[in-house]
Design a protein around this nucleic acid. Structure first.
Length: 356
DNA sequence: AAAACGGGGCC
DNA sequence: GGCCCAGTTTT
């Protein structure tokens, strides 16, 4: 591949971008904080899904200091429903890192930026280029799709050697352009033109140099390694209510899905049939209560298939002391202020339909 | 190098 | 039901 072709290619994409870029809020700023927020939210997330979250986030936390000062619970609540919750935890930690290690000023070099929690190679390059016009190529899903097709790369993209080749191409392309513009242009082009489904090859401004198009490989690239099977998990939630409108909740702290989100006292089983309610375990032996089970709820995660069921257990007296010590006692009316996994929030939606 | 980590949208 | 999406961290 000649240097001329890299230049020709990048010129064509930049020209296309200049008249076809979508108007997105984070394209109106070079504030590294705002760029950072948008990049984290958009990791593994479509713009359609992330846009409202971005607007709410920067409204509530307009700068590093505000985010660093916020209780983590509040940040998690704002993130509720978006998924990959480590992003929120890491952002909160990184904000405090910026306060303590950089006097509250967002770092302005790639090597300092990439040291922040939750920022890897892609996001560091994005912030460094968008905010400071530094010459670091972004290589995200869009760019990988374009590069593998355009240059006809058939190797499995996760391999280190393939990654190196992709970065080499990306670097040669960015070298001919303004990094802050180019990095957005190449991603936008990959997303709008060289899309996963139904790419617009016929109208593509650089289709005569595309290896995949010439060799009829467009729908075969990029090549990814095969994925693992989903694991089944069965969650049985106990919604234990006392005689004064309180309920017991719990925070997920273990290394598992939904860390830092709330839940009800949980019994996890390996099968649906395995579940039994043991009153002794909850010190409810000899206490009057009734149990009201919900329907089954299902939620699909990338590597897991969750089946959940809720049991409302109404007591005719206060909670036993041992339960109050083990869990968090909150008024039922306050549950919406906590952050919940999707499947529990869905259950709340059904309750509202039933009750109101 | 592989596995884990969410949720929504598309076909 | 499988794959994708402005990836990073942990194992």
């Amino acid at each position: 591949m000649s240097a001329d072709l890299y230049q020709l290619t990048s010129n064509a994409i930049t020209a296309w971008y200049n008249s076809n870029a979508r108007d997105l809020p984070w394209r109106h700023t070079t504030d590294p904080y705002l760029i950072w927020v948008s990049e984290i939210i958009l990791q593994q997330t479509t713009i359609a899904q992330g846009l409202d979250y971005y607007n709410r986030f920067v409204e509530k936390y307009p700068n590093v200091q505000k985010l660093a000062d916020a209780p983590l619970d509040d940040v998690m609540k704002l993130w509720q429903g978006l998924g990959y919750y480590s992003r929120a935890r890491n952002m909160h930690a990184a904000a405090q890192q910026i306060i303590s290690e950089h006097n509250g000023v967002f770092p302005d070099t790639y090597n300092d930026i990439i040291k922040l929690k939750g920022i890897g190679k892609y996001t560091a390059a994005a912030i460094a280029s968008f905010s400071y016009n530094l010459n670091y190529p972004v290589v995200d899903g869009n760019v990988i799709r374009f590069l593998t097709r355009y240059f006809g790369i058939r190797d499995i993209i996760e391999l280190a050697t393939t990654q190196k080749a992709l970065y080499n191409h990306a670097q040669k392309l960015i070298d001919h352009q303004t990094p802050s513009i180019w990095n957005q242009a190449i991603m936008e082009f990959g997303s709008q033109y060289c899309s996963y489904k139904k790419p617009l090859c016929q109208n593509c401004p650089i289709n005569k140099n595309c290896v995949a198009l010439a060799q009829n490989l467009v729908d075969k690239l990029p090549v990814k390694k095969t994925k693992k099977k989903k694991k089944n998990r069965y969650f049985f939630y106990l919604i234990i209510k006392d005689n004064s409108g309180h309920v017991l909740i719990d925070k997920r702290r273990q290394k598992d899905i939904w860390q830092e989100l709330y839940q009800f006292p949980l019994i996890e089983c390996n099968t649906l049939e395995e579940y039994t309610f043991d009153p002794e375990r909850y010190a409810l032996e000899g206490i009057a209560y009734d149990i009201n089970p919900s329907r089954l709820y299902k939620q699909t995660l990338t590597h897991q298939l969750i089946t959940a069921q809720f049991f409302v257990i109404s007591l005719d007296k206060p909670f036993p002391k041992s339960l109050e010590e083990k869990y968090i006692k909150v008024p039922w009316g306050a549950i919406k202020t906590y952050s919940w996994p999707k499947v529990i929030d869905l259950y709340f939606s059904d309750l509202s339909i039933t009750l109101f």
